[in-house]
């Protein structure tokens, strides 16, 4: 739709050098967690109720260091990120027990964990997770950059408070 709108502006005499088409559109903007206006701004998005500081590590982190991190954490996993916070994998606590002492995150991680977009409705995600008996979801931007971890129980509690 927007390419045709841009073309129409040019036929209406707008300088082609000053007409641009944000091709990825509103979906991309919202999935990146950027501000929005309108009647539905009160609806909570998944990205608005995440823990933005879950356990993370780079690929070359020794398993001993990951174990230490998780021992002082509510989490049963550690996310493996690049330097610019792209999610590469997830190391579960259970994988650490069987790992050799010299192993690194790269060797024990599950690559490419499932993620959801920032602008997934929190209420919908709570229901989806409950159906699959899952407690958390990893929220990323469209480029795979970590936003945070969505906790089903935390979000349900917040949604409950918002409804009262």
């Amino acid at each position: 739709m927007s390419p045709r709108a841009a073309c129409r502006l040019e036929t209406l005499g707008f300088d082609p050098g000053l007409v641009f088409d944000y091709t990825l559109g509103k979906a991309d903007w919202l999935a990146n967690g950027l501000p929005r206006e309108g009647e539905t701004v009160a609806i909570l998005y998944a990205g608005e109720v995440v823990d933005a500081d879950p356990p993370t590590c780079p690929l070359d982190t020794p398993v001993a260091a990951i174990r230490q991190t998780l021992d002082s954490s509510r989490y049963g996993f550690c996310l493996v990120l690049t330097a610019d916070r792209i999610v590469l994998g997830r190391v579960r606590r259970s994988a650490l027990d069987a790992a050799h002492a010299s192993a690194t995150a790269e060797q024990v991680m599950e690559p490419g964990p499932s993620t959801v977009r920032f602008n997934t409705r929190a209420e919908d995600l709570v229901q989806r997770l409950a159906k699959r008996d899952l407690k958390t979801a990893v929220v990323t931007t469209p480029s795979g950059c970590l936003v945070g971890v969505f906790h089903r129980d935390d979000a349900a509690a917040r949604l409950g408070r918002a409804a009262t």
Binding site: A5, V19, Y22
Partner: peptide, 23 residues
């Protein structure tokens, strides 16, 4: 989108259009 509806736009400044996902 026609000559009348675009009157509020300043033709000397950049205009960015967008839709849902560019389709």
């Amino acid at each position: 989108l026609d000559a009348t509806s675009v009157e509020p736009l300043d033709r000397s400044r950049a205009v960015v259009v967008y839709c849902s996902d560019g389709l």
